[in-house]
Design a protein around this nucleic acid. Structure first.
Lengths: 341, 341
DNA sequence: TTGTATGCGTTATCAC
DNA sequence: GTGATAACGCATACAA
């Protein structure tokens, strides 16, 4: 029933001027001297008609969309990721870009990249493992200027600039603290979940490194997120002489706060005292984890500077056309000591 | 450094055919009889050049973008919301639409609607309170066919089809269960947070209604998400004769699992036994909440059918051009009894 | 200071 | 079966 959306030509007719004048006025082009009276007439006409410019047409004409595509689909959603996205959106729009989340979940591999390329974004911020050689070629051929990988696990950093997370350092920080608080045997939880396992291994490597340097025994605990799995892991650990006669106080880095909560629930069920028998460190500083008793010592990740730096980086790469790869370390971490260590 | 992206004309030249033939082949138009050999040549040429069609140009020509805009920015992110979005993305792409998240956070009110309208989406699924009369006018004028509000709180359902949540029923379910488990005094937590308060009031209304029907006293507990606030609320409640000499067993519906965890932490700190002295019911069935001891009884929300129905509804409205408003009740809830009641 | 004309990449209407 | 051509809405070089 609704008529077709008004175009700039409609506005021109309504205001009694030419289409070009409408464009000049609505884009605030100061190099074209336009009388204030004409400006007012155009603006009023546009308002009256409810005119909204057609982004596709503008993109076609100008050759750039200002779109920044952020197809972060299967990242672990939580307060941290949401905060990062919100900040990024804010900073990018401040620089004149339009941030859009478009996953194209159904498409795998290079097909997904093609779907992204159809929108002719000026930049793509995607999980690093999605930016394969082929995907990057497709995107670059489609005119994408800046491509930044998020959450590098090592390999893909060869291809594009990547926002790395030094997971090993996180594990090391936790391990250092555990030893400082008296642990004489260390363990690290590695999640069994597909998307988390790689990060878990890196964090565990940090724990192992510290354990080796300090000369304390180290155990890797592969763990699915269920009470049953945790209980089984605990039994196995006890069977191996865990907190038994060895008498060495154990320290566990639980990968993150979720796993730490799982662990502490099972430890409590089995009458193992925290931090008396076992000390536990989480990661993320989730609001919920502070409600644990004892309160959870955790590694807090700080992304506050990331959005601004990331947006700035995108802008620079877009404007300079540079193709060099930068490593981006945009976060810091702090150990927050509470009662579980 | 990179040359401009290849166009369908480039593909035509490469394949030695006309531009129109390229379009026919790449769009699989069966009404035009094209020799298999030509088809193959075109496809190969497109692949070789890394040709990707220009979405903006296609939108301009065809008059429709296939874009479904989902500017859900400040909804409470959690496993539920993420699952809903993932399902919606899947179902919409199955129907040939392209789901995009674009918040335009910086823009308020009708300015945000204008930003959405620039993309000429075919449908917009937005928080119901953002789809004001004015915003709807802007979008409709820009050719948006279907507009669906998400998370109605009552008022805006007058304007567009809205996916409602019967929050009152959730509260009532919790209250019924609490009474069945022996509670003789009910309370409902209402979050102090801006985005949650309205929902909290609706859920609390359900508790109040059941309390009145069953003739048990009812208390509304306004609560910010902090241990200090919860401790203060507990003191106030005790001062008012809470679980003291009245001896009536109390049941609390804590709004959701997060607040339930807050509550149970503070109750434990004060030596109040759950469910002995106070029974607690949460909502959402968060994985983490199962780790509580005692395990948390909760109201599980089931959105499994929502994505398919929502996508189907969008498709029907788009294709029929209907403007009637439908109420959409796309979820169900179940009480999951555990140990806290 | 304002208007005219052209082209961006695509699809669709017509001839051939 | 295939190819030339127009039109979508906008921005801009150029003419007036």
């Amino acid at each position: 029933m609704s008529a077709k959306p008004p175009t700039s030509l409609d506005v021109a007719r309504e205001a009694g001027v030419s289409q070009a004048t409408v464009s000049y006025v609505l884009n605030n082009r100061s190099d074209m001297r336009i009388s204030d009276e004409t400006r007012a007439r155009v603006r009023e006409a546009a308002d009256r008609l409810g005119y909204v410019p057609h982004a596709g047409a503008r993109t076609l004409r100008t050759g750039h969309s200002g779109l920044v595509l952020v197809p972060l689909v299967d990242i672990p959603y939580g307060p941290l990721a949401v905060g990062l996205m919100e900040g990024l959106d804010r900073e990018l729009s401040r620089l004149g870009y339009t941030m859009i989340q478009y996953g194209a979940r159904r498409l795998k591999g290079v097909a997904a990249a093609r779907a992204w390329a159809e929108l002719r974004p000026v930049a793509v911020l995607a999980p690093a493992d999605r930016l394969t050689r082929q995907a990057v070629d497709v995107l670059r051929a489609a005119g994408v200027k800046a491509m930044i990988g998020i959450g590098d696990m090592g390999r893909s950093s060869e291809i594009v600039s990547t926002m790395t997370m030094d997971h090993e350092a996180i594990g090391a920080t936790a391990a250092d603290h555990l030893i400082a608080r008296g642990s004489r045997a260390l363990a690290a939880v590695v999640p069994a979940e597909d998307g988390l396992r790689d990060m878990g291994l890196l964090r565990a490597a940090g724990v192992r490194r510290v354990a080796a340097a300090r000369g304390v025994p180290y155990t890797q605990v592969d763990l699915a997120f269920s009470e049953a799995a945790a209980a089984a892991a605990l039994d196995a650990w006890r069977g191996a002489g865990g907190s038994g006669r060895a008498r060495a106080k154990h320290g566990v880095f639980a990968y993150n706060d979720d796993y730490a909560m799982l662990l502490m629930a099972v430890l409590a069920d089995n009458g193992i005292s925290v931090p008396g028998d076992v000390a536990v460190v989480g990661c993320d500083d989730l609001p919920l984890a502070r409600l644990l008793r004892p309160r959870l010592t955790t590694v807090r990740l700080d992304f506050t500077t990331a959005p601004a730096v990331l947006a700035q980086t995108v802008d620079e790469i877009v404007k300079s056309g540079e193709t060099t790869r930068r490593p981006l370390a945009l976060w810091s971490h702090t150990l927050v000591e509470r009662d579980s260590t």
